[in-house]
Design a protein around this nucleic acid. Structure first.
Lengths: 195, 195
DNA sequence: GTCTATAGGAGGATAGAC
DNA sequence: GTCTATCCTCCTATAGAC
């Protein structure tokens, strides 16, 4: 059976992959429709707002998907420290498996548009906020005070995002391993302080 | 006394600012020469390799400048923990002072070119490596074993880079504060283990 | 070595046939 | 709603006058 995905979904998926790999400004819409095996006109039929709407949809959809991934890993793990470790380890494995192309789905766009496109900047901020809230909720559930949980979520996500940059540039997972170990031990320390 | 900077330096400086703000692919060379108040032809006179050579020069020059900034702050600080704290605090202050535009000088380019331009990717890797080596050297000088110092440098820089992303997207220095506190306490723990 | 003009192609966006 | 042809702008790069 051929791909049963709709034209709109194929465009969205192709855009997500290209934006992640080459950036928002570095990706052409012709390129998107070619890779999605869709006629050029379909893009403007499904995304009347053009490139900006496509960018915003990619940010929000990718953000929701990544959030679900975190939820899944956290649910599977026996405790939050293990969850953090698993997440960093999984990120490193994905980097190697995809030849250092699949990192954060929105980091490049976030940096590119932060000072140039308010609509897209807000979209990335919303997605980061949803991730931070989810992580903080998990830390609170583990018994960490809310303020401390928020701090942990912020430094956890900072470490992850920064490690993605270094790993892609250095073509090595060493930064991810170091950042993951640091994040895990920080969470562990926060837990023992509580207990 | 007008600006005594050479045409080449003005082009380099304008490029650095624009690349940092709008990305490498998002910046046009017309824009660069306009902002540098230089005729378009001058760009190709001083940078025969075109945009790629300009990008590489910006990466390496900005990288060396940022390294000197780190050296300066570390030399002024009484100890490495304070140095790390000062660095994160200074980064946060710069973000606010520049309306969240002045973050890492090469992070956007690094993400944009990691999978698309090997010459520029190597340049960003060289710069990151120089920063990591400098940080690790400082940690070793403070009495931390080399392997641990390397790990600390990696998680320190990951935290810093990731915090830049979150701060720019959220338009808040909260991530920088949280990442800085975590990095400082990690270094402090490494020191007390030694002592 | 400074600067202008332009080539040649790719960019986003649209009109309109089917 | 699918798809093609085209518009106009902007891009990088170069040629060549001065």
């Amino acid at each position: 059976m051929g791909a049963m995905t709709s034209t709109k979904d194929r465009i969205l998926y192709a855009s997500a992959e290209l934006f992640r790999r080459k950036g928002y400004t570095g990706t052409g819409l012709k390129e998107v429709t070619t890779q999605a095996q869709a006629p050029f006109g379909s893009l403007y039929h499904h995304f009347p707002g053009g490139k900006e709407q496509l960018g915003e949809d990619v940010i929000r959809v990718s953000g929701a998907f990544f959030l679900q991934l975190f939820v899944f890993i956290a649910d599977e793990a026996p405790d939050v420290v293990t969850a953090v470790q698993d997440f960093f380890r999984g990120a490193g494995e994905t980097l190697v498996a995809t030849d250092y192309e699949d990192a954060c789905p929105i980091a490049v766009i976030a940096l590119e548009v932060a000072s140039t496109n308010e609509t897209l900047r807000v979209a990335t901020a919303d997605v980061f906020t949803s991730w931070l809230d989810e992580a903080a909720t998990r830390f609170v559930a583990a018994g960490i005070p809310a303020a401390r949980a928020r701090e942990l979520a912020l430094s956890f996500l900072s470490a992850l995002e920064g490690a993605f940059i270094l790993c892609r540039a250095l073509r090595s997972t060493e930064p991810m391993a170091a950042a993951g170990a640091a994040a895990a031990s920080e969470v562990r320390a926060a837990l023992t302080t509580v207990a």
